[in-house]
Amino acid sequence: MALPPQLRAIQHHLRTAQEHEKRDPVVSYYCRLYAMQTGMKLDSKTPECRKFLVKLMDQLESMKKELGDNDSISQEVVGNAHIENYALKMFLYADNEDRAGRFHKNMIKSFYSSSLLLDVLSVFGELSEENIQHRKYARWKATYIHNCLKNGETPQ
């Protein structure tokens, strides 16, 4: 279903959910949960947004049934650790590539996806200061390196 423009802010989290459907269903579930909660705050009034959010909720409930016995889904503290570990793993991969001077689409995507997953961590509560800094740095780095490569410059 097409994403209504009012919900544009969650489109990348939903794409990350789709990309992880098979690879890591727990990541996919929490990306959708974050998108659902954020979408409800963005706009649950206009009919097309409400329709979209109802579909997303249907998806979440069926994922919940499929994954219900997974501790990462049934216990928030386990889910929190799962998402945080995954986000930091992506961040470290990208950071290592950056420090080694290896700039490519994959590492840009890893920086950006790690920042999205740090957004998702907020479903479990306030982000730590460290994760807020990580998210800011990862988003800035992804944008900076992307622009450098687009302009044919070497990132510093």
């Binding site: 659902m36 009034k45 919940k64 889904i73």
Partner: peptide, 27 residues
């Protein structure tokens, strides 16, 4: 129609909030 539309909208919003709360409570 305006008021009916509004009450349908808010009923659906409430239902979504309840489903979300239920989903999270079961975690």
């Amino acid at each position: 129609t305006g008021s009916v539309g509004t009450s349908v909208a808010s009923a659906e919003q409430d239902e979504l909030s309840q489903r979300l709360a239920k989903l999270r409570d079961q975690m």
